[in-house]
Write a protein that binds this DNA or RNA. Structure first.
Lengths: 205, 205
DNA sequence: GAAAAATCTTGAACATCGTTCACAAAGTTT
DNA sequence: AAACTTTGTGAACGATGTTCAAGATTTTTC
């Protein structure tokens, strides 16, 4: 006999599954409490026994997306730790392209990571914040090879900057509000930007 | 005696004023049709004689924001047309910092430019799309000095990339979902990025 | 094992939205 | 002045997230 807590846990996962699917297919506005309840076969009010509110649900989906994104970036780091500047640059390009590919393949879910805003007054829980930091890790390592002389905090800041820059190119490139950038061009933009930055770093002695 | 059309036009402006104020103070979720109606002293339904729907209203506010942003960037281009690479780089830095300052000072309105999504099925009108293109202009001119040998379409793409990169740094830097970046650090990040790109461009023969 | 207590589930009800629409008011034309 | 057209009005509609009293279920107690 399954205990109540276990069943609830199973239902919570079903709920997040359904929410993830809904967002992936129809975007954040396509996430409806009533549809979710019907999907997982429970009453409307029962959702609030599984999550506090819709915000938490969105954050949980975001957590999953972040984990998959992290895995995708890790997969792009196929080789061993880079030692030469050339290898470091190649890895940065690979990670950036993987980021772009992930965003394209998971457009709606990826957008939620950045576009979702908590309800008035609500605050983002700590675990959600700290999760995001893991992204910079993929940049910090190759960057340490490129600029070994800089202090760690400064390298951390540079990681953040480089990540943000690539993110910006991807975000605006995939924004259909502007004229859509063809896939090939977008990849070339990213490659060009990362190469440019690496070249700039190489000269900076 | 004021004609009906003129009065309506005046009311439309009042409506956009009120909407702009509401968004600036409380963000996009703070934009309520009923509050706007009360603010400008008309019936709820009368709003739909002034604009087609809320989407159009948001778009019109965005148009204003874009115009002010354009003016702010223009103001940052105080000197004459850059001729040397050094001048071009300085101007790019100045424009980027002005972009950051504008975003910070108009946080909610600036966000709407990128985060607002049209209702299901609705399409962004042409005028809204073409307006956005004007932003790249501020980058294209200095960039033409830095890389005069590249073809125009490629320079256009580079402008877009550089703009997007700076935009990304600003967007993530001002995102309170992550740990907030102090103003000074954010400015330094941007300056560093633009300098890095310029240096990379200078070496690229 | 049955009764009692605690817990969970339910779906109707509530508060808010944007949006519509029949009707009244105002303006325009004949 | 009367007929017609346009415009303004706010109640009503359909969605939405969230709550809550009451019924169903599980757990505890003796």
């Amino acid at each position: 006999m399954t205990t109540t807590a276990a069943r609830r846990e199973r239902q919570r996962i079903q709920l997040i599954d359904a929410a993830e699917k809904a967002i992936a297919e129809k975007g954040l506005p396509g996430l409806k409490a009533r549809e979710l309840a019907q999907e997982i076969g429970c009453a409307l009010g029962a959702i609030y026994n599984l999550v506090a509110d819709m915000d938490e649900l969105v954050l949980r989906v975001g957590s999953r997306t972040l984990a998959r994104l992290d895995a995708a970036l890790s997969a792009a780091e196929n080789e061993a730790t880079p030692v030469s500047a050339r290898q470091a640059a190649d890895r940065l390009v690979a990670v950036a392209l993987a980021y772009c590919a992930f965003a394209r393949d998971n457009l709606q879910l990826w957008r939620v990571l950045f576009e979702h805003r908590m309800a008035e007054g609500a605050v983002v829980p700590d675990w959600a914040v700290s999760e995001q930091m893991t992204l910079f890790r993929h940049i910090l390592e190759p960057l340490s090879v490129l600029v070994p002389d800089r202090a760690e905090p400064e390298r951390m800041l540079m990681s953040r900057t480089l990540f943000s820059a690539v993110h910006g190119v991807v975000a605006i490139g995939l924004e259909e509000k502007l004229i859509a950038v063809p896939r090939r061009d977008l990849d070339r933009q990213i490659e060009g930007l990362v190469h440019l930055v690496c070249r700039g770093l190489a000269v900076s002695t």
